[in-house]
Amino acid sequence: MATGVVRQYGQFTPKVMRRRRTVNVIMIGVFSVCAIVILIPLVHILMYSLIKGASSLNVHFFTKPPQPPGQPGGGVATALVGSGIILVMASLIGIPTGILAGVYMAEYGNRNAFATTVRFVADILLGVPSIVIGVFIWTLLVRPFHSFSAIAGGVALAVMMIPTISRTTEEVVRLVPGTLREASLALGIPYWKTVMRITVPAARSGIGTAVVLAFARVGGETAPLLFTALGNNFFQKDIRRPIDALPLRLFNYAIGPYDEWHRIAWASAFILVFFILILMVLIRRIARGRFKNVV
């Protein structure tokens, strides 16, 4: 690669040097412009949804169920509760599965065709479009049972959480120093106990990061919920029935005509962005540099 340099700048005359310096300055400019061009819309989205959203918040937003179209004073209490229920279900399924699968890949994953396959598939699963996951869960849990349900929504999000958690867990468990394991094994502790009591706890902050990351990934997902959770104007306790979710509400209100809806949509956007912001800060706090490069 250096041949190019030599060919181009073989003679270090002042003229060449000046040109090289000019090119350097221009390129620094170009890269800075790239960064600015990216940051403008991104900062605008962030600031706009936070500022416009915050100014749209009121007490009703948190406490009231949605009103019929056109009636003022509605809120998204049902959607907040619904999203909570869906996320809890997704976590109940996704977190243990993700962590245990991740531990498996980290602990037994070397030169093991099965683990290699799982790792590869998990990576691929990460890239499956969320709408396809929605369709998949619909065929699996909605069509056979003749009902949209909170469960279906929860499972759809769990499917999205599992690869995120397992791959990150694997990375962080691998970072636990071998000496720790060896110390434990040298004391005659069985291997499985070493993993559960030594290795995994040692990596817990990293695993925590994995979980938070997965949460951030699915917290605002809308596409997989469109035809699994469907939506609901009322509070729903029965998880076999359709349930409301904040991103769904946001979508439906955003494309609707009512000013009131738009206000609530912006307020919902604020909640989602704020939620993500908190999670990302949390990740930074948990990781505090140790797993920074992993997540």
């Binding site: 990216i38 991104l42 989205i45 997902e221 809308t222 946001l250 955003a254 989602l272 993500i276």
Partner: peptide, 25 residues
Amino acid sequence: PVSFMVELLAAVPSVVFGLWGIFVF
């Protein structure tokens, strides 16, 4: 801050981009 910003925006739900798209963009 810049890389935090970039990471944060990778996590912003697409429905929020859509909302911004409809009303601003």
